[in-house]
Amino acid sequence: QLARDGWLIVVPSADARQPLYLQLTLFWRTCLTRVHWTVVMNQVPAILGLMLTHCLCAMMDLKAVELITQAELNLDTELQAIGVGNILSSLSGCGWPVYILVSQTVTALKLGSRSRLMGVLKIMCVYPMILVVGGVVPRLPRVLPGCVAFWFGIMFSKETGLDILRQHSHKWDIAIVALMALVTAAVGLMEALLVGFLVAVWVFTLQYATRASVVRASETAAFLRSNTGRPLAHMEILERM
């Protein structure tokens, strides 16, 4: 009755519910023949901008993990893992960019994990969910995705607007982000990235050019004495210097 009244997600027909490997095969067999390559080429600048943004976000996430875990990461290994993950994500039909999960990494660290076993266990738990998602989703109310998206939006606004911007961000950083948002809405993403980069360089140069000299005082090291035992001849040489 709930499904007929529109409260539940529509169940696809039996013909449409195919195994995952058949869905991927059908996807790759049909999508390439329907691609408008002229449209794809027109979007190359935006794709390059997204790639640059993804690279910057990946480096920021890796640095955040280093600061939180107090451990030095091997950037070559981490970036190779992210690249392989992106390739596998594209081949599997997902298309979502793969990046390091800071929250899950920190959670695993706080739970006491010190090896890759946590990642293996996560895969073992997630993969069965992919196989049964077709039978679970039709039983969920249609309002649930909207509520989850609304909750994520509230949490993002709270953490970004209140915690990060108010406590940890400089006013120039906030201004640059706001300017990039305006340029993105008015012109495009690539232009916004270029404007943000140029303004950030200008602000950096201005701050260091107008900053007072960091040298507060200068003096010789004549008053310093080494605590190492030395022969008398060496001590006389040091006194003359």
Rank of each mutant, 00 (worst) to 15 (best):
S169W: 15
S115K: 06
G95T: 02
F156Y: 12
V148D: 11
I123D: 15
L109P: 01
F156E: 15
S92E: 09
C125G: 03
A108K: 01
L117Q: 08
I82N: 03
C147Y: 15
I87Q: 04
L109I: 07
F156W: 09
C147V: 11
V148Y: 14
V102Q: 09
V106N: 08
C147I: 10
V133K: 00
F152A: 15
L91H: 09
T107P: 00
H168M: 05
L91M: 06
V84C: 08
P141I: 00
L88N: 06
G153Q: 00
N86V: 00
S89H: 07
K122T: 15
V106T: 04
Y127P: 00
Y99Q: 10
L101C: 14
L88Y: 10
I82H: 03
G112I: 02
S103N: 05
Y127W: 15
Y99C: 08
V132F: 09
N86D: 08
M124V: 09
Q80L: 14
W96M: 04
L144D: 09
I100Y: 02
W151C: 13
L111G: 10
L144W: 14
G153F: 03
I87M: 05
L131N: 03
K122A: 11
V120Y: 06
S90R: 06
Q104T: 05
M118V: 07
C125R: 10
K110H: 14
S92H: 02
G161V: 02
P141V: 00
Q104C: 07
G93H: 01
S103A: 14
L165K: 01
V133M: 00
C147L: 14
F156P: 02
G83I: 07
V102S: 05
V133E: 01
G135S: 14
L109T: 09
V106H: 08
M118F: 10
S169A: 12
R139H: 07
M129Q: 07
I154N: 10
G95M: 10
S103F: 10
Q80F: 11
L101I: 15
H170A: 07
L111E: 15
W151D: 11
T105D: 03
L91P: 04
V120K: 07
Q104G: 06
A149L: 14
R142T: 08
K158D: 13
V148N: 11
C147G: 09
K158Q: 12
T160L: 12
V126D: 09
V137E: 03
G112A: 04
G85N: 02
V98L: 02
Q104K: 08
C94F: 09
M124Y: 08
R116G: 15
G134C: 03
R139L: 04
L109W: 04
G95F: 05
S115A: 03
L117T: 13
I123N: 11
R116M: 05
L144I: 04
C125M: 07
G119E: 02
G119C: 00
H168T: 13
